[in-house]
Structures are given as structure tokens and as C-alpha cells.
Design a protein around this nucleic acid. Structure first.
Lengths: 224, 224
DNA sequence: CGCTCGATTGAGCCGCGTCAAAGTGCGTGG
DNA sequence: CCACGCACTTTGACGCGGCTCAATCGAGCG
């Protein structure tokens, strides 16, 4: 729909989004690139949010903990995705690297002055948040209204679209991450995978690699 | 935190938010006020979103339908709340009046030009969306990580805070609305209410009126 | 080769959904 | 004013899907 969208939403991991640019057509803000190791925290709930983050390579999860300590993963972020926008200045969720990851960190103050001075930058920010809002709502719909295998199917379809991978998807996240994203247990996720494999809907060359054999079956399953 | 916030987030229904103003400190956009009857559709999924809406009086629900036809209510909107912001121009959810409601409709184009010309307006929009994003995430956490009675407790606390009603809350929505918001059945919602009444946590003078007797018990229950 | 961590598989249980039947409040018309 | 009807709510009995607990399997790595 718009130049920004391509570089932010649809992204293909293997040829890593190599640039550290964030907003608008003419207008680019460079951030400082940082590396994070597996499971390393990028920021935590309650911390000051003076940076906005963009995935350059690798994968990131953002999560919150319920009062009884259970983790809910709210989103996975792949190369090109932006996360950690907090106009209030305090992070309301935490972010960790799932795999070794390169993150470009842009000072919030820079983004804010850019948004204040350039209408296109403000517009880009608004669209970014709008997209996050849409996927948060979709997520709520999945958690509220779908059964276990439907959730897993929805997850796989979503991932297949984001990696524009023909055929094989290599999952950056563990079963535990998937379970905490879909609000299931690892056992249930595992059983759903196995069942789909039995039905020849997917193949599992290894636990982290998924081949979608029958996309329409997945779509049917997702609807349920 | 900011003048806008007070008029948009915390609102007290009885003295209805009588104004049709929307953004910023100096900057106000007037909308045309419209009345909607019980269960009347304000806008539907897929329709063109050329207006942004603000509740003047009454209550509104926004919802989406899962592919198998089950409804998920994403949010309730009370006087002062803004809903229906869609930068993409198409509504990704539908909105209906829960009770007789007055809604002020502001042309999207006006808001967009305001946001393009005035940085404060853009900022206000961004904060509005940020707040919606935060509550969508909170909702996902509740749906993903809480049991039935914990969900109901969370719902009651949330509502008690939004109506700054001392003691009694009068629910604008039916059990069916509550169930579709919390992703439960009406039976389970009803049972949770009854159980809380037995525990002297709440009282139910009528099915639409709730008195919170023991707030800390609710908070404890919510955490679970 | 063996250790460790993640994934899979199985058995049993429990919370919530489903189905069914009263019960309650409110508006309408006699 | 009361009788009736309808929509909503409550309550009960029962079944099932997904969680829990536990054992086994498999892959990466020292």
C-alpha cells in the first residue's frame, strides 16, 4: 500500500534487512546496532523506554507475565519488524532475543522530534501502531475463539506468510515459545504438530523445521 | 499525564461527556452527533472508515467474528472513549450500540489533516492508539492466562475503575456480551457471579447491578 | 560415548462447554 | 390492574478438550 509498509511488515529473513533506517520515504533515522544472544533480554517490563527497536536479523519475542507468573508471549518479531514503541516512556512488556539477533536501537527522542516536525513521519508511526493493534486484535480472537489445533494452524499460516518461504519454514522459536504465544502447553502444541503430520498437512524434517504440504488444509483447520 | 487523557480515558457516565470535541489542548474538532438504538450497528467489518467515533453517552461494543461465526468482543466503549480509528480506511471490526447511545462522528479526513498540520494532534492520535494497544494486550493476557472466575474478576475491576462509581456498578451489557468479551459462555459467567456473591465478594441487587463489597478479594481472585 | 535439554507420547483428571429446564423481570394487551 | 409472553438469567447434569504428571525419545555437545 505504501513504501514504508514493505520494509516494515513483509520481510524475508534469509536476505537480512540490512539497513538501520526506520521512518518515511525521504526521511531516515539511523540507530545504533546491537547484538543480543539467545534468550538475552533486550528490555524489561517497567524499564524506561528511551529506544525504539527494529529487528535487523534474528528473531525477538515480546511478552508479559500474569500475576501468577505465567508467561504470555504477545508477538514474535522478525527482520524488518519494529517493536518497543511506548509513547508513555515506560515499557509495558519485555523483549528477549529468541535467537542470536541484531537489533537497531533508535532514540525515542529522535523519533518524537521527527514525528513532531514531519507529518509523514508521524503518519508512519501511526500506521505502525495501527498494524500492531490489528495483530493484537487478531491474536485476541485466536486466543478467545479457537481450539488448540486451530491455533497452531493459524500460527503456522501466519509464519508462512511472514517468511515468504516457499515450502519449508525454519522456526526460530521453541515449542515452549509457541505454547506461550498460543496460550497452550508444549504437550498440546506437540500433539497438534504430530496430528497434522499424520494427516499429511505438514512434514517435520526436524522439530524446528516445518514443511507445509497442504496449505488449504491448514486454512480449513484454522477456520474450524 | 496530559489534558487529553482525562477527557478520553477516565470518564464518568452519569454526568455525560457532553462535548463533541476530540483532539489536543487548543485544537478541537467538532463532529456530528448521532443517536443509535439498542443493538444498532454503528459500522460493520469491511465498511469504509471515513469517520472516527467518540461516545458521548451510552455504551458501545466493538467485535469481530471468527470464521466459524463465533463473536469475540474486543472492547467496550464508555462515554469519552474513542473508537473506530482506522488509518487504512477500512473497518477491521464492527461496532454496535449496547444501550441507546449518542455518538459523535468526526470525518477521518479532518482528523488526518489536523494530524498532518499540527504535531500536537498527531501526538494525541498516537497516544490514543497506544492506549488501545495496551488494553488489547491486557485483554490477550486475560484470555490467554486466566481461568473463568479470574477473567470475571478482572472484568469487574476494570469496569469499576472506568465508572468511577463508589460501590455500585450498573452494567450496560448483557451476560452474553460479557461472555463474548471474556471468551466464556453465559452460563460460566453467571456461575462466576453467583460464586462471588456466595463468597460475599460482590452483591447482585439485580442482574445488571453489581456492588463490589470486597475489592481486595476481587484483586486476589484476579491474580489467581 | 554419555550427559543434558528439548520434544514426543501416554494415562488420567478437571474445568469449562453443552444441553436442558426452571426462574425472573419487563413490556404489552386484555 | 393483572395475565401473558418473551427475552434474559440462573441452575443442574454430563461430556470432552486440553492440562497435569510421568516416562521415553532424540539431538547436540563435551
Amino acid at each position: 500500500m505504501r513504501e514504508v509498509k514493505h520494509s516494515l511488515a513483509g520481510a524475508c529473513p534469509p536476505p537480512t534487512v540490512s539497513d538501520a533506517i526506520i521512518l518515511g520515504p525521504g526521511l531516515a533515522i539511523h540507530g545504533s546496532r546491537m547484538r543480543f544472544g539467545r534468550n538475552e533480554e533486550i528490555f524489561g517490563e517497567g524499564e524506561a523506554a528511551d529506544h525504539i527497536c527494529r529487528v535487523v536479523s534474528g528473531a525477538v519475542r515480546t511478552s508479559r507475565f500474569s500475576s501468577d507468573g505465567r508467561r504470555q508471549i504477545l508477538a514474535f518479531h522478525l527482520p524488518g519488524d519494529v517493536f518497543g514503541i511506548e509513547p508513555g516512556g515506560v515499557h509495558s512488556l519485555s523483549a528477549e532475543a529468541i535467537t542470536e539477533a541484531e537489533i537497531s536501537l533508535i532514540r525515542r527522542s529522535l523519533v518524537e522530534t521527527a514525528a513532531a516536525q514531519d507529518a509523514r513521519a508521524a503518519r508512519a508511526l501511526i500506521e505502525l501502531m495501527s498494524r500492531q493493534l490489528t495483530s493484537a486484535r487478531e491474536h485476541a480472537l485466536v486466543l478467545g475463539r479457537k481450539g488448540a489445533s486451530e491455533r497452531v494452524a493459524a500460527f503456522l499460516l501466519q509464519l508462512a506468510d511472514r517468511f515468504r518461504a516457499h515450502g519449508e519454514i525454519s522456526l526460530p522459536m521453541s515449542r515452549s515459545d509457541i505454547a506461550d504465544y498460543l496460550a497452550l502447553t508444549i504437550e498440546t502444541v506437540s500433539r497438534s504438530f504430530t496430528q497434522m503430520e499424520r494427516d499429511h498437512t505438514i512434514e517435520l524434517p526436524s522439530s524446528r523445521r516445518v514443511v507445509v504440504c497442504d496449505r488449504s488444509a491448514l486454512e480449513l483447520l484454522q477456520a474450524a
